[in-house]
Design a binder for these strands. Structure first.
Lengths: 104, 104
DNA sequence: CTGTATCCGGATGGATACTG
DNA sequence: CAGTATCCATCCGGATACAG
């Protein structure tokens, strides 16, 4: 099975928090700005959104691009790696949607 | 996207903790006893293992069967629902394994 | 607009010892 | 064997206010 040191656990942990999978899903169809992400991830606070995005960025799943304008403009987009992982994540979300009625 | 009340979030949370996905994976190939599970999920304490198993059982992903013998014998196995969700989970694990080298 | 600072509560995970 | 009891540390998420 998976030994204690298996790094896959870290990845699972990364993807396995309340917002990460949702954030990746939100970015599947294209880049979004901070505020737009916050609106789509209904209920997330700016602090938690930042945390989530930073973790995903550090892991290489998404890219943050700053457009130095006034007002400030920042865009988040999936990297190739991010698009790649969004496939199994989407299949998990799909499973959840189609089995919701069976879950207690 | 996914509204705040969308129950899929709860399911994601359930699957998305340190051990749940691993436990489901361990049971894919057949029933296991408590002690055997603890050995396979290297490093888990009995308390946390119990918590994990109970949550999965309550959600209907696995079944707990007691064989009243001496010494006591308890077997955990996936329900149909559990086997069903193990498919997308396995694809996520597979993704992680094949992309580990790309992850920071 | 895009965050950071602060403070807080609760859940999760963990070590160890003990029990039916 | 299969857990439960206890106590504890930490991370995570959340509300609100404020800053570059």
């Amino acid at each position: 099975m998976y030994a204690a040191q298996c790094p896959c656990r870290d990845v699972l942990d990364l993807l396995a928090n309340k917002w990460a999978a949702l954030a990746i899903g939100a970015l599947e169809s294209g880049p979004l700005r901070f505020g737009e992400l916050q609106r789509r991830l209904e209920g997330i606070s700016p602090k938690v959104l930042t945390q989530t995005l930073r973790r995903l960025e550090d892991a290489g799943f998404l890219h943050r691009e700053i457009f130095p304008a006034v007002p400030l403009h920042v865009e988040y987009s999936l990297t190739d790696l991010g698009h790649s992982v969004s496939v199994p994540l989407a299949s998990l979300r799909t499973w959840v949607e189609s089995h919701l009625h069976e879950i207690t």
